[in-house]
Design a binder for these strands. Structure first.
Lengths: 224, 224
DNA sequence: TGCAAATCCGCACTGAGTGCGGTTATGGTG
DNA sequence: CACCATAACCGCACTCAGTGCGGATTTGCA
């Protein structure tokens, strides 16, 4: 085993692990700094490694590529979503649980995380390779969430319909969000982004909420 | 202008354009051959260029990267989808039009196209960079389709809800399809793939079809 | 026929990423 | 504390992707 791939210890105990986690963090922060100052393409891995005081070769034992630096906490977010699914209330349906899980994904843990999130939002729109990686990660997360959703509702959802439901939710939200964040360049205004996320979620969910309300009441109007 | 980026002439008229289209085609075929024989990662761009009798440098004036070879007709498919939207019947709603447009996207034009489609299906699952590119292309297509859908239904859909609707459809279908094609390795059986696409579409569409049936009749049951 | 533009492509370069192997640091054990 | 197995570090050399430059060649058109 050549160095733990993601260093996933919650509390790194040994000196080795603490040191490792610290260097990892330093790398991310150095990268953010350099990306913001010089631009993504203009920053080389050698630059980042030098800024974090490690050898260029060693960089690759922390992150497989430059993009990876932008998604250091991605699987922690997936884990949070999965936990949200597992801790569902007794009366919740699949749609409610899924929605709450997705809200978890968007939460930033600290200042550095939201600074990173803002930077990432810009880079996803401008750097193809970053966008590709983001989509990839989203798809993986989607799968994991769908799998757990199917487990949480064994009578109502099989694997396939859980995947379809999850794909529809996330697809609708991200797709709407993309349009909303395309209109103006409010990427630097966290409140505006937050508002766009809310609106995207609302728009995306309207048909589903109606569908889940079916057994309860007839909706008042019929336009889409 | 350094060579037309995608060589988008429908009928290349001049000798220059015909030659160009022919070389482009040759490159794709050579690449398919080599990918199937030696594997994707094992095939270098230099190999492909040599097999097509052009210089390595020249390759990059036909395709920006190795992945691009696997998606040579991607925007022709988008165009077909857009045309399907534009030629909608007078009684069709957004969901019906969108569905028919998406069916267009899956159609292969000739034998080489479906051979490529099969290869691509396998590579998308095994080579990260190919998957990333596929996702990227899908997202772009999604945008274009959503834009045209909004134009086709100006009273019923704004930009945002058109994007949400499109994202939900495509997200649900691809997500379900991914699970269906994951179970067994039926990737080499075109009929099985076709069947999986059909099932994925069915599963993904069930809630929407119910929703669009709203104004007409009450559905018989209420489970998801 | 001749000219302007498009194309081809060799060369040199940068940067990503990998394998190898020697060196150093760490954690656990006696 | 000494010792050792192992994990981590990282320099070196390498392959390959991708780009800019510039000269040679081909094509379209008048």
């Amino acid at each position: 085993m050549p160095i733990c791939v993601e260093c996933r210890m919650l509390w790194p105990v040994s000196l080795r692990e603490r040191k490792r986690a610290r260097i990892r963090q330093t790398l991310v922060e150095a990268a953010i700094e350099l990306f913001e100052r010089d631009g993504y393409d203009e920053t080389t891995i050698a630059d980042i490694a030098a800024a974090a005081d490690i050898g260029t070769r060693t960089f690759f034992s922390y992150f497989a590529s430059k993009e990876e630096l932008l998604f250091p906490e991605s699987d922690a977010r997936v884990r949070a979503a999965v936990e949200a699914i597992e801790s569902r209330g007794p009366d919740d349906g699949p749609a409610e649980v899924l929605l709450r899980a997705l809200r978890k994904v968007g939460e930033d843990s600290d200042d550095m995380a939201s600074r990173l999130a803002a930077l990432r939002l810009r880079l996803v729109r401008t750097v193809p390779v970053v966008r590709g990686r983001a989509l990839q990660i989203q798809l993986d997360a989607q799968r994991e969430i769908a799998r757990n959703l199917a487990e949480a509702f064994p009578e109502q959802l099989d694997e396939v319909s859980a995947a379809a439901l999850t794909g529809a939710f996330i697809g609708a939200i991200t797709s709407a969000l993309q349009v909303l964040l395309d209109d103006t360049d409010k990427l630097d205004d966290p409140a505006a982004v937050q508002e766009a996320v809310r609106r995207a979620t609302d728009v995306a969910l309207t048909p589903w909420l109606r569908a889940s309300a079916w057994t309860v009441e007839q909706p008042p109007h019929g336009t889409a």
